[in-house]
């Protein structure tokens, strides 16, 4: 079964008196457990597509069905519910809550799901163990390195075991060693938990880890290729 089904999707933004078309007639399907990247230069529409898949934005035309939900037809409450229950986000600049501890940042999605405290604690500690940050649970983001912050962001995205994780340029602010570390972590989580990862990236390091590459150019799909890793 497809996790994501995008049909004839077009996205236009108002610009001055006219409009700018960011995505033109996009058609893709992504299945469960895929490790896929939307690759393209700046302005190619990869982040716009990722935002629509994350129900943070809506298509102008066409349809984007994520986990059986047509994004354009969802109410604000239903969109929030979809994000809360089934989606995880990883951002280029981590977007951690600066005044909260690592533990509290990772716990946040579980608070929204209103899980009991004991269960939350167990899940947070497990997520921190996945990313190797159990010893930093009480630290706050300003006390962490960039690589550690992104690992916290991964733990936060994964803690509720979502079906789909959307990562927007997750390594853009990291050095090579940290980037590989992060990508290996995500690869392991994809393999162990069968979570679908969709990246928006133009970073060669990320591209090297992908098992499927969807190339975007000027809002259109230029190429869609599956990579066979040895």
């Amino acid at each position: 079964m497809n996790l994501i089904d995008v049909k004839n999707l077009t996205k236009r933004f108002p610009m001055g008196k006219g409009e700018f078309t960011a995505l033109k007639n996009i058609n893709i399907t992504i299945g469960k457990g895929e490790f896929v990247g939307l690759i393209g230069p700046s302005g190619s529409g990869k982040t716009t597509l990722l935002n629509i898949l994350g129900s943070l934005d809506v298509p102008s035309d066409g349809e984007a069905i994520v986990l059986g939900n047509s994004i354009g037809a969802l109410s604000a409450k239903q969109s929030a519910m979809l994000r809360k229950e089934s989606l995880g986000f990883i951002f280029q600049s981590y977007n951690l809550l600066q005044v909260h501890t690592v533990y509290e940042n990772v716990e946040f999605p579980l608070l929204l799901l209103k899980l009991p405290a004991a269960e939350r604690k167990m899940m947070v500690m497990e997520a921190l163990a996945w990313v190797g940050l159990t010893d930093k649970a009480k630290s706050k983001p300003p006390q962490l390195s960039g690589g550690e912050c992104q690992r916290v962001a991964i733990a936060r995205a994964m803690v509720k075991r979502p079906s789909l994780v959307l990562a927007d340029e997750p390594t853009a602010n990291l050095d090579a060693a940290n980037s590989h570390n992060i990508l290996k972590t995500m690869e392991a989580l994809n393999r162990d938990l069968n979570t679908t990862f969709v990246f928006a990236t133009h970073d060669e390091k990320v591209i090297g880890y992908l098992r499927r590459k969807i190339f975007l150019l000027d809002g259109r799909i230029d190429k869609d290729e599956v990579v066979e890793h040895s």
Partner: peptide
């Protein structure tokens, strides 16, 4: 702003 966006991305509605 980023924090507000993050809350929404994590599942908050704007009203929340």
């Amino acid at each position: 702003q980023k924090e507000i966006g993050t809350y929404i991305a994590l599942g908050y509605t704007r009203r929340q």
